[in-house]
Nucleic acid binder design. Structure first.
Lengths: 214, 214
DNA sequence: GAATTAATTGAACGTTCGTTTTATTAGTAT
DNA sequence: ATACTAATAAAACGAACGTTCAATTAATTC
């Protein structure tokens, strides 16, 4: 046999991407075989090579587009105001929303970096650094204006990102907590962690902060 | 050829464990071949099977002993006092010290869970849950006595553990920060995050807390 | 020093891997 | 209808994988 009825390149490629993210997240990149991926799509392994020249190209494409999506999402969500508290809140909300919505892709981008060539690894890490720098800038601005009590900007940024991204490890949609509840709690924990002052004083309880959210 | 001069089972097994942790941390479990591991030890691949019946047995052994070590370390470090602030501080200090000291093994235990059989995965996760429960208990005790301001004990425990374990991602011994400096900063961030009261008031600056450390 | 045990080698097994090549069919344009 | 292009199947490639087995040598025991 050969070309199947109703076959469509665009649809097949999209199906390959989707199945690849899911399979790599579940099994890991090395453990997933091209034959397994092909079977999930409903196609023979050779057909995959029409869309991605190598297995690593497939992985890199998924990662690059994930990181581009993250940067684009933040560009769209970034508030115009200079107020560090508002900016930090927007960063946290965007980060959590994006990562919960794309749990599998985030898993892939965070766990499979070592399967990339040196050059491509550098490319992905550059994007990641760009994203993390945004948070460091917010923290620095907040610390300089006295709104935040941050001891070490770089260390605090790493701690916050690790804490926030960790959501994807345990969060399951439709369980005990909603996305909104999780986000509120994380926002509050973040503001406490950086010692943020709102209306001139530190926020003592989560309910106070929840009311401030727009 | 066969048995080599000066060969010793105990030494070889120890060398295999050490090389395996290092190689799996760097390449990933699936990507590391038994031949690669054998070469690192300076032995033929077949010799490995004298010590570990399968590749998965090797992985499981490394993980189980890592988790057992973590639980043992906490049992030794756990303070006798009932004071939640002291207990939380001890938990943070022990967690960070242990994970920095065994960065590679932690990497393996956290990243390669999916390569375990269902039964063994359950075994490892049970140990992990036991360890995490210790933190939840501390947070609950602190919240009940009004010393902590914690909205959701389970969620806060996960956030803290993710934040602390994240140290191994960016921390490199001998660089900008010492282990002591990192620990102090993390201790402070933790106390801020849970809204801990010391001597009846919240700690505003890292220097205040650093002085309280024993 | 002979017998036994411990530790390892070297070669091989069957399987699976990523990938390539060639042929074949479905859709599209002329 | 015919020519052309897009999309796939089927089969095969060499390489590498985890693992096993028999042979061999070092160390130990008697």
């Amino acid at each position: 046999m050969a070309r199947t009825t109703g076959s469509d390149g665009e649809k097949t490629e999209a199906a390959v991407r989707e199945a690849a993210v899911s399979l790599i997240a579940r099994l890991g990149y090395e453990a997933m075989s091209m034959r397994q991926l092909a079977a999930e799509v409903g196609v023979q392994a050779a057909a995959l090579y029409r869309y991605f020249p190598t297995k690593e190209d497939l992985l890199f494409t998924l990662m690059r587009e994930h990181m581009e999506g993250l940067l684009k999402a933040w560009e769209a969500a970034r508030p115009a105001t200079a107020d560090p508290v508002t900016r930090l809140a927007a960063y946290v909300e965007n980060h959590i929303a994006f990562h919960i919505e794309r749990r599998h892709a985030t898993h892939v981008s965070n766990m499979e970096l070592r399967s990339l060539s040196h050059e491509r690894l550098t490319q992905i890490l550059k994007m990641r650094t760009t994203y993390e720098k945004e948070l460091r800038t917010i923290l620095r601005d907040g610390a300089e204006t006295g709104l935040f009590q941050v001891d070490d900007t770089g260390l605090t940024a790493m701690a916050l990102i690790q804490m926030m991204t960790g959501v994807i490890v345990w969060f399951r949609p439709g369980e005990r907590l909603s996305v909104a509840e999780v986000t509120t709690t994380y926002l509050f924990m973040t503001m406490r962690l950086v010692g943020a002052k709102i209306d001139g004083r530190e926020v003592a309880h989560v309910h106070e902060y929840a009311q401030l959210r727009t």
